[in-house]
């Protein structure tokens, strides 16, 4: 008598079922578009709030304490807790969820905009002033272009944060790809859960790659290789014009 065949759980059943890709009704395309819409709308609102404030604080260095601490506090706020709080306070609906997402997205943008402006080489700013730029010109023609790598990296981490938290927000009634996950979990429909997870992961990775491409397009090649690699210890680094050996040496480590 042959042993009974235990059917392997086909994780991809939901994802590869053509019926779920129908453009009509609440299929995958619809959920995907919803998710993208929530993410971009939230990011846009957050940027409109955080960028001017960050630029003001960074340019004038007034309220620096605020910028630094909002950045740290924002990171330690539990996203799910904030969503729950909003829903219990205001009730189920898209608006309270979007507000919660904005609250989470503002700190990284604000903090990195501030940090970006502060990282700008003072001598370049002094040169800009010395050449007769007005304060607003100094900000937009000198400081912002040089601060862009950090400003954009703040926007990118906010983007990922929003995309991920929008998934969680399905638990409190938001649409989007999170619905597949949450609804699947409540009905033990694992192929659906898996489909939701894969789709949201792919979406997040694509959004990140897309934003990396945008970063390359807007950041001047002259300031690209900055940020992390420049630390205080590099103050005393070799002067490249003074270097006889044009390539990295062999045998330096033994």
């Amino acid at each position: 008598m042959p042993a009974p065949v235990v059917p392997m759980l086909n994780y991809f059943a939901y994802l590869f079922d053509g019926g779920h890709w129908s453009l009509a009704g609440e299929g995958i395309p619809d959920r995907l578009l919803q998710h993208i819409a929530y993410t971009l709308v939230t990011l846009a609102i957050s940027a409109v709030i955080a960028l001017p404030v960050g630029l003001f604080i960074g340019h004038t260095n007034r309220g620096a304490f605020l910028a630094i601490n909002i950045g740290n506090a924002g990171r330690s706020l539990p996203t799910f807790g904030l969503l729950s709080l909003m829903v219990v306070l205001v009730g189920i609906g898209t608006l309270p969820v979007i507000v919660a997402l904005v609250v989470l997205a503002v700190p990284p943008i604000l903090a990195s905009t501030y940090a970006g402006l502060r990282s700008v080489d003072r001598s370049a700013v002094d040169a800009a002033i010395g050449m007769g730029m007005r304060p607003i010109q100094v900000l937009f023609r000198a400081e912002v272009p040089m601060a862009l790598p950090l400003i954009v990296s703040g926007l990118r981490s906010a983007l990922l944060q929003v995309c991920a938290t929008a998934t969680v927000a399905a638990y409190v009634g938001l649409g989007g790809l999170g619905r597949l996950l949450i609804d699947g979990l409540s009905t033990n429909d694992y192929p659906q859960v898996f489909a939701g997870a894969v789709l949201v992961a792919v979406l997040a990775v694509l959004l990140d790659l897309l934003s990396a491409a945008v970063e390359r397009a807007v950041v001047s090649p002259g300031v690209r290789e900055r940020s992390v690699r420049r630390t205080r210890w590099r103050r005393a680094r070799p002067d490249p014009t003074n270097e006889d050996a044009p390539t990295s040496p062999v045998g330096i480590s033994g």
């Binding site: 938290t165 996950l181 894969v198 997040a204």
Partner: peptide, 18 residues
């Protein structure tokens, strides 16, 4: 690292058991 970091946590929680 960038790809792994961009995957939302909830998605990771349900994909890992697979």
């Amino acid at each position: 690292g960038g790809i792994l970091y961009s995957v939302p946590s909830l998605a990771l929680f349900v994909v890992i058991p697979a």
